[in-house]
């Protein structure tokens, strides 16, 4: 793994393996459960069924039904149970089938977990991990394709991370499990199957609150997180080959805390910036990043801050409509060229 935390060509180290994002998450959970008895997993279909998206596959066989606990369809109940167990010093990892379903437990996340440290004057902590995927693109339509990353990242008391590759999936999930505060780990459905190099060292964590420069470049900064980073990297490769322009991709990795410093440093170098997210941009992550940039980088900018995200409609079913709504590579490319003041 490179210093930026992004998987690169493996070194001679025998500790580096190729695995999927899904496998990296599983490795993180397995390692942490082996390390710490207090760590347990609960959620819908995490055990017998091997996980709705197979992230927890095999863990129940390995750790038993007490530490890999199947729950009823009862998000408010078992997220709250995670809060209560965490308050007594356990390290629960609550899996929510998709981020969309976390909304039915919103009260426990925002009104309860996020409040405990401050509201009780630091007398009790809530070291809870909630991990859940989001992601559009499989015609899952309006109720199953949403990204609420910004909602949670805008809540003081929570920490929110969103890995974009297998190395960070392992490293950030482990950091979240060891963290003493409630951490939401936002995963991504389309990249569960993506492969990358992962250093399997059990003590190698990805620090929370540190962005990574996923690709170095000099002409334009693209700020992204999660799947948007994957798309941005592909666009960067294409534009380098076809247009000879060099994009720097900053992968936020952590949304709260937010590493504005790394973003600002990149913008100071490139003087142009495009922010990309999978969620709705209005009041979203890109809105926040743009606000930070205009303040931190006012004198550095050669062009207005551009941002793109999901079209602001409930996601439709028809493939043509869905594609038209999404921040696809084509749209990222067009926006990048626009900020670069180059013809499409």
């Amino acid at each position: 793994m490179s210093a930026s935390g992004v998987a690169t060509t493996p070194t001679a180290s025998t500790g580096v393996e190729t695995m999927t994002y899904r496998e990296a998450l599983r490795l993180a959970m397995r390692q942490e459960m082996e390390r710490d008895e207090r760590v347990f997993v609960m959620g819908e279909e995490v055990g017998l069924f091997d996980g709705s998206y197979k992230v927890t596959a095999g863990l129940m066989d390995e750790f038993g039904p007490d530490r890999v606990r199947d729950t009823p369809i009862s998000e408010e109940g078992f997220v709250g149970a995670g809060v209560g167990a965490a308050m007594l010093g356990e390290r629960p990892i609550v899996e929510i089938m998709t981020l969309n379903f976390l909304l039915v437990a919103m009260d426990q996340v925002v009104n309860h977990a996020a409040k405990i440290g401050a509201m009780f004057g630091g007398e009790v902590r809530c070291p809870l991990v909630i991990r859940t995927p989001n992601g559009a693109g499989n015609q899952l339509t309006a109720q199953h394709s949403q990204s609420f990353d910004g909602w949670f990242a805008g809540t003081p008391g929570l920490k929110v991370v969103a890995p974009a590759n297998p190395a960070d999936a392992k490293g950030l999930l482990k950091a979240a499990i060891r963290d003493d505060d409630p951490v939401l780990v936002i995963e991504n459905l389309p990249i569960y199957k993506e492969k990358g190099y992962v250093d399997v060292d059990a003590e190698l964590l990805t620090p929370i609150g540190r962005a990574a420069v996923a690709r170095e470049g000099g002409d334009l900064t693209v700020v992204a997180h999660s799947f948007a980073t994957v798309r941005a990297l592909k666009v960067a490769e294409k534009l380098a080959a076809e247009r000879g322009v060099s994009l720097e991709v900053v992968d936020l990795r952590s949304l709260r805390p937010l590493d504005v410093e790394t973003v600002a440093k990149s913008v100071a170098k490139t003087n142009r910036v495009l922010c990309v997210e999978e969620g709705w941009p209005s009041y979203g992550v890109t809105a926040e990043i743009a606000a930070r940039i205009q303040y931190a980088c006012f004198d550095d900018l050669d062009a207005p801050v551009e941002r793109i995200g999901m079209a602001e409609v409930p996601l439709p079913y028809a493939k043509e409509l869905e594609l038209a709504a999404m921040p696809t590579e084509d749209r990222i490319e067009r926006a990048a060229l626009q900020v670069l003041e180059l013809a499409a």
Partner: peptide, 12 residues
């Protein structure tokens, strides 16, 4: 809101 939390405390 305290009910699910109580449940988790009991689980613990």
């Amino acid at each position: 809101g305290q009910l699910p939390i109580a449940t988790g405390m009991a689980l613990s």
